[in-house]
Amino acid sequence: MPVYSLNINGKVQKVDVASDTPLLWVLRDNLRLLGTKFGCGVGSCGACTIHLNGNATRACLMTVSSIGTGKITTIEGLSAKGDHPLQLAWDEVDVPQCGYCQTGQIMTAAAFLKKNPKPTLEQVETAMNGNLCRCAAYHRIREAVLVASQKTK
């Protein structure tokens, strides 16, 4: 099997997997970065959201061979101490229910706030639209994104 060198959370990691392996399963099975979740495997739920070169991307749809030198950030690399404004806001607003979707929600929100640091509620709704929460914590998710946007200078 081919060996791929992946730039993940600022570190180069080598993995030896089939070329069509989705990044999701490389992260989980090979690298044990388990904050990136499997919800659907077909790009429909957002539980596997990571950043590729700063853009929110679905790890389940991206094959390992397509990444090249792209820079990947997972939830584990979003902040050193779990203190990204979104992570703090998520606790403050008490967003999680079962919690399974939440890392994906945070990764989508983080990429979005980078591009639009002071969004309106409507813009937040649109940006978060593709991330499903089966427990339906949507109100708090939106509120937390807005709270985080106020924290960010």
Partner: peptide, 19 residues
């Protein structure tokens, strides 16, 4: 209103689920 005691683990993606 008391926050979920697992919030801090959840938001950093700590492994805790069956999968």
């Amino acid at each position: 209103p008391i926050r979920n005691v697992e919030n801090k683990n959840i938001v950093v993606g700590k492994p805790m689920f069956g999968l």
